[in-house]
Every structure is written in structure tokens, then in C-alpha cells.
Nucleic acid binder design. Structure first.
Lengths: 169, 169
DNA sequence: AAGATACGTCAATATGGCTGTCCCATCTTC
DNA sequence: GAAGATGGGACAGCCATATTGACGTATCTT
């Protein structure tokens, strides 16, 4: 245990370098927490033959109806081709629909169909169950800290995007 | 915005159902925070022609030297075949080595080579930079809350495994 | 001696990413 | 009005990472 842990901590440690234990704990909890949370929805997705990539698109379309494709591309940070496949699958299943932008007619604005709304809500229930019980166990003060640390992980150039998502709830 | 958000909140809301805003915020911050943190190491991995799957294995082997393969399988929760490929890649690059267990000679205990130790430390530096600055910006109290909420996301049956990782640091 | 366990390996498959290229419709700018 | 930029779609091919199922071998347990 000692070797890999200590080798990355220089002997003349500055405050930022005294955190190996705390950093490893954060890395591990993020890994397990994130993967376990996403697993909570796999079953619901599999019923429709969909994967997590589909859920990510569905989630953000639910969050910001009439989202142009370019905005969704920035959020997901994947290529147009990868997103195209996902959106085709969702449209084929009648979960999303598009509408030509009225300001810029080149844009296609994405929104959920009523079936999509219902399906997203069903998946969201699973996320809510997991997160709400973690929130309840930790207490409101911890939840605030949880948010603060995660906000600090988001690079400055992406922060505006995340804030925009959350400003109107 | 209103439709998909409100549809999943029943009118007769119990306390656990009054949290849609908080839950969506947590989902989004976890998504962006986790993906951005993992991106911090992609460049270092690509230099060796490795991916994130390799880093996950490398990380947990660094964390618990002489880890049997079965323990790593439980941690990563992937199949033996998937892990086998990853371990082959790491061994081919001289980053890990195995040793026959002396208690149970069927086991192969995994550990990093000196090169592996150095490489893992280099990747860990990138993680530390990201997490330490997020910790510093949020403050120690927030960090505690961050940990508490994430612990609450880990199912009871997995918790022992995570605690075991962190008990001897 | 029988069965369980730890690990390895074969073959086939699915998912979700990627690059590069080309196209069309529409908006902006000069 | 022409030129160029932008939003979006589509083709082909590739790669990384995961999956299932079946089978084999060494070793431990009973």
C-alpha cells in the first residue's frame, strides 16, 4: 500500500499536495456513486432497447424543451454523428420530435412527445429515489457541500452552460 | 420547461417528492463533474495508447497491491473477459505484474511494476489538481458533505468494499 | 474422489464513441 | 445578389469497451 500512495507526494509538500487521502477518497466515491446512480435506470432503458447515451439526450431535452441540436451537442460533448444515431433511435420510438426554428429556420428544435415525457419521468423516478435517499441520509448541509465541490470540478468555460440549465427551475 | 419537470411530481407530494429541483441539480452536477474529472487524464492515457478502462484497473491495483483478480472484478463490476483484455494490455506495457498467491496458489495477485507506479502517480497528479482545487474552493465543510452524499448513493452491499479501500490510508 | 473456486480463453455480438467527407438549406455580410 | 458561414443530415469505416456462453486447467475444500 505504501509505495504507490507515497510516491506521488513530494517530501516538501505544499498545502495542495497534502491531500492524497482526501483526493483518493473523492475519486473513489465519485466513481462508485456515479456508476451506481446510472445503474438505477438501466433496467427501464433496456425495456425499450435503449442505452445510457439515449437517456442523456432524453434527459437534457426534457430539461430544456425546444433545444437546438447544436446546444445539445455542446452539453453532451460528443460528435454530431454519434448524437445523430441516438436521436434517430429516440425519434423512431416516438419519444422525441423536432420542429423547425422560427427565428432561424435552419435549426431543428428538439422536444419530447407525450410518450417521451412519460418515459423520461419514469426514469427520473429511479434517479430521484436514489438521490433523495442519499440527500435525506446526509442532511441539507451536506447536500450544499456536495453541490459546491462538484461545481468546482466544472471548468470555467462549461460553467455557464450548467448554470443556464439550472436557472429556471 | 414546465411540462417534463412537473409531470413527475405528483400533486400530493410527500417530502421525498418535493425535491425535483435538487435532484436535477445533483444529476447534472454529477454528470458534468464526473465526466470533466475523467477527461483530465485522457491525454496521459492516450500517450500510452490506453483508455479509461485501463486507468480504472491501474488505479485500484495501485490502491491495493497484491489484489486478487476476483477482488478487482468485484470492484469494477465488469466481466472476466473484459478485464482480461485490459490486464493483458497493462502487462504488455510493463505496467503491472502478477504473482501467484502464497495462501491460495490459484490466485494471481496483481501489483504495479515500478513503471506502473510512476505512470499511475502521473495520472493521479491530474486528478489531484482537479479535485484539490475544487476542495479548496468549496472548503473543508463542503468536502465532508460531498463525501456523505456520495456514500449515500452506494448500495449497502457495495459499501463494505468501498470502506475497505479507504480504511488503511 | 467429488465438487467448488480462481483464472484463462475461444467466438460472437452490441454499444457508443470516433474520423473524414460530402451534401443541402438557410442566414449573414459585403 | 453573391460569397461565405452556420445548422443540420448522411455515408463509410474504425476503435474501445462492454456483453454472453461455453469450455479448460489448476488448485482448494470437503
Amino acid at each position: 500500500m505504501a509505495v504507490p500512495s507515497s510516491v506521488s507526494v513530494p517530501p516538501t509538500a505544499s498545502p495542495l499536495f497534502l491531500r492524497e487521502n482526501e483526493v483518493r477518497r473523492g475519486v473513489e466515491l465519485l466513481f462508485f456513486g456515479y456508476t451506481r446512480l446510472t445503474r438505477a435506470i438501466d433496467e427501464g432503458l433496456a425495456e425499450h432497447g435503449l442505452g445510457r447515451a439515449h437517456h442523456r439526450a432524453l434527459y437534457f431535452i426534457a430539461r430544456q424543451p425546444d433545444l437546438p441540436i447544436s446546444a445539445l451537442l455542446k452539453i453532451l460533448a460528443i460528435t454530431k454523428q454519434s448524437l445523430g444515431r441516438v436521436l434517430t433511435d429516440l425519434a423512431d420510438r416516438g419519444l422525441i420530435e423536432t420542429q423547425t426554428g422560427n427565428i432561424d429556420r435552419r435549426q431543428k428544435l428538439l422536444r419530447l412527445t407525450p410518450e417521451g415525457v412519460q418515459f423520461e419521468a419514469q426514469l427520473f423516478d429511479a434517479l430521484r429515489n436514489s438521490l433523495a435517499s442519499a440527500y435525506a441520509a446526509a442532511g441539507q448541509e451536506s447536500v450544499t457541500g456536495f453541490w459546491r465541490v462538484l461545481e468546482g470540478l466544472i471548468p470555467a468555460e462549461d460553467k455557464a452552460m450548467v448554470v443556464a440549465l439550472q436557472k429556471d427551475i
